[in-house]
Amino acid sequence: MSKPLGVILAGGQARRMGGGDKGMLVLQGMTLLDRVIDRLGPQVDRLVLNANGDAARFIEYGLPVVPDTVGDDIGPLAGVLAGMNYAVDHGYDRIVTAAADTPFFPHDLVERLERASDRATTPIALSATHEEGRLVRHPTFGLWEVRLRDDLRAALQDGLRKIVMWTDKHGAASTAFEDNAFFNVNTPDDLEQAEAILKGSA
C-alpha cells in the first residue's frame, strides 16, 4: 500500500497567542511548523499545508498551500476537506492530518493509524490518549479516506462543525498513544512548557 498524503492543518487564528500563525513560533531554534514537517514528512508520500490568507508567508517551506474551500475559518474539518480535494487531484486515496502547533506527536503516527483503520475496516482512524481513566480522541491527528469527500462537504455546508459528530457517523477507529503525545502550544505558557519538555528529553 502506498503512503498517504500528509496534510498539516495550520488554519487556526491563534487568538490565545495574540494572533498570527502558531506554526511560526520558535521552539529552541526551530519553528513549530519545521518540527511538524520533520516528524510527519518521513511518514507520508508528500506534504501539503492547509492555511488561509496570503500563501506567500509560507514560501520558505516549499510546500503547496491549500486553503479552505467552504465557509470562513470554520475549523479543522474544513482543512480535512481541503486536503481531500488536493489528494483527489493528485491521485491519493488517503490523507493523514496533523496540527501545526503540536511538535511532539509520534514518529509512528501514520503506521499506527493505518493499522487501526485496517483492523476495524473503517475509512477513518483517529488518535487518542488515556486521560483520567477515559479515552480522549485527538481528531486533528487522523487518517481519512478521500472517498468521503462529498459527504464531508455536504455536512459542512449543512452547518456541522464538531469533528467527532461526523467521524462517529462513519464508525471511526481509534488508536491510543502515550499521554503527552499531542501536547499543543496554545498560549505563551504552553510554549515555555514545550521548552521544558525539550530540555528534559535532551
Score class of each variant (00 low, 15 high):
115 R>L: 10
99 A>L: 11
141 F>W: 12
144 W>C: 01
149 R>N: 13
197 I>T: 08
135 L>G: 10
180 N>R: 12
3 K>D: 11
159 G>W: 04
16 R>L: 14
12 G>L: 02
58 F>L: 06
136 V>D: 13
96 V>Y: 06
57 R>Q: 13
18 G>L: 09
63 L>C: 03
157 Q>S: 02
56 A>N: 01
179 D>P: 09
129 T>D: 06
17 M>C: 05
63 L>I: 00
181 A>K: 00
85 N>K: 03
178 E>A: 10
129 T>F: 04
195 E>W: 06
15 R>H: 07
140 T>M: 08
41 G>I: 03
106 P>K: 08
129 T>P: 05
75 G>D: 14
111 E>Y: 15
188 P>H: 14
199 K>C: 03
68 D>M: 12
109 L>Y: 04
100 A>R: 08
53 G>K: 00
34 D>E: 14
84 M>V: 06
84 M>N: 08
165 M>L: 10
134 R>Y: 02
135 L>H: 02
186 N>T: 07
173 A>W: 07
15 R>K: 11
94 R>M: 01
109 L>C: 11
128 A>P: 05
70 V>W: 00
85 N>S: 02
201 S>P: 03
185 V>R: 00
110 V>C: 11
194 A>Q: 00
85 N>I: 10
47 L>H: 02
30 M>S: 15
180 N>Q: 09
144 W>M: 10
135 L>Y: 10
177 F>D: 04
121 T>I: 13
188 P>S: 13
72 D>I: 15
46 R>M: 09
163 I>N: 13
159 G>V: 10
158 D>R: 14
146 V>A: 12
67 P>T: 01
36 V>M: 07
152 L>G: 05
112 R>W: 09
82 A>V: 09
68 D>W: 11
194 A>T: 10
65 V>H: 00
116 A>T: 03
194 A>C: 03
151 D>G: 10
39 R>V: 02
184 N>A: 06
191 L>K: 01
161 R>T: 14
66 V>T: 09
89 D>N: 02
43 Q>W: 06
159 G>A: 07
191 L>E: 08
98 A>E: 11
145 E>G: 15
131 E>K: 12
75 G>E: 02
186 N>C: 09
74 I>E: 03
1 M>V: 13
84 M>C: 13
47 L>K: 02
195 E>C: 03
30 M>Y: 14
163 I>K: 15
83 G>D: 03
32 L>K: 11
172 A>H: 14
41 G>D: 15
179 D>Y: 13
153 R>A: 03
187 T>E: 02
111 E>P: 05
144 W>N: 07
45 D>I: 09
165 M>E: 08
165 M>Q: 09
193 Q>R: 06
73 D>P: 07
192 E>D: 08
78 A>D: 09
132 E>L: 12
45 D>M: 13
48 V>A: 03
63 L>A: 01
122 T>P: 06
192 E>Q: 15
127 S>M: 13
4 P>I: 06
192 E>R: 15
74 I>R: 15
123 P>F: 08
8 I>K: 05
109 L>Q: 04
153 R>L: 07
41 G>C: 11
187 T>P: 07
41 G>F: 07
59 I>A: 10
138 H>M: 10
